[in-house]
Nucleic acid binder design. Structure first.
Lengths: 115, 115
DNA sequence: CTGTCGTACTACGACTGTCGTGGTAACTAT
DNA sequence: ATAGTTACCACGACAGTCGTAGTACGACAG
């Protein structure tokens, strides 16, 4: 039951992904699972959305990739690491979120109110 | 200083517009001014975004239009009125907002935390 | 030994909402 | 005269997400 539509989360995928890279590098599959876990299944990011976000953010210098070629079974895995520019971007987006939240809530009817 | 980018407000324009129609019909120019006023200039909706939202939401049955042809100077003005389906949609979007807000905030670093 | 599930991606084209640019038209104040 | 405000509309471009599909390997059940 992925309850949150992509329309409303759009614009926050970058924040979500970067948050999960703040402490350690990670990779697509792992990030996808963590988003699902942390949101308690309320948001399940689409694979294509995630991987295209990686490509875009790497192009913008917010993350860097490196490949682990030595996984068991000759598998590969592409890790991503947040850059200083990525941290700046993350911080700016968090501030924008605070602002946006305040604005949007002015247009949300109060709990008790009839609509 | 329109500080909120369209990327992050995208997905909430419908809510914002419908909120301003909850009590009375209104029209593009007026709604645009109210958004600006209520957000304290933090969000200024683009005209094209607003009018294309009208078209879309009318097509979806969330609003209905009617034209006032008798304005001073032979001018016309197109008003929009929210429909019952529009109210349902608004309510659903408000609930989705609450959910989305909770999810996003899990990925926002605390105020005091170093990022 | 066959099939399904989980891991870990990638490619491609379609779609939707927003944006930039530019235009129309009438009234109002300087 | 001319700039500003009101009140809209058309057009094409763009970015991010989505659906679909495919690759490839290992583990485990039947």
């Amino acid at each position: 039951m992925a309850e949150i539509s992509s329309d409303v989360i759009r614009g926050y995928n970058d924040i979500i992904i970067l948050y999960l890279l703040l402490n350690d590098p990670s990779y697509g599959y792992e990030i996808s699972k963590q988003i699902r876990l942390m949101s308690e299944d309320k948001y399940i990011i689409k694979e294509t959305t995630l991987y295209s976000a990686f490509t875009r953010m790497e192009k913008n210098g917010f993350i860097e990739s490196f490949v682990d070629e030595d996984l068991a079974g000759g598998k590969k895995r592409t890790y991503y690491r947040i850059t200083p520019a990525g941290r700046d971007y993350y911080r700016a987006k968090c501030e924008e979120w605070t602002l946006t939240k305040e604005v949007i809530e002015k247009f949300i009817a109060d709990e008790g109110r009839q609509v």
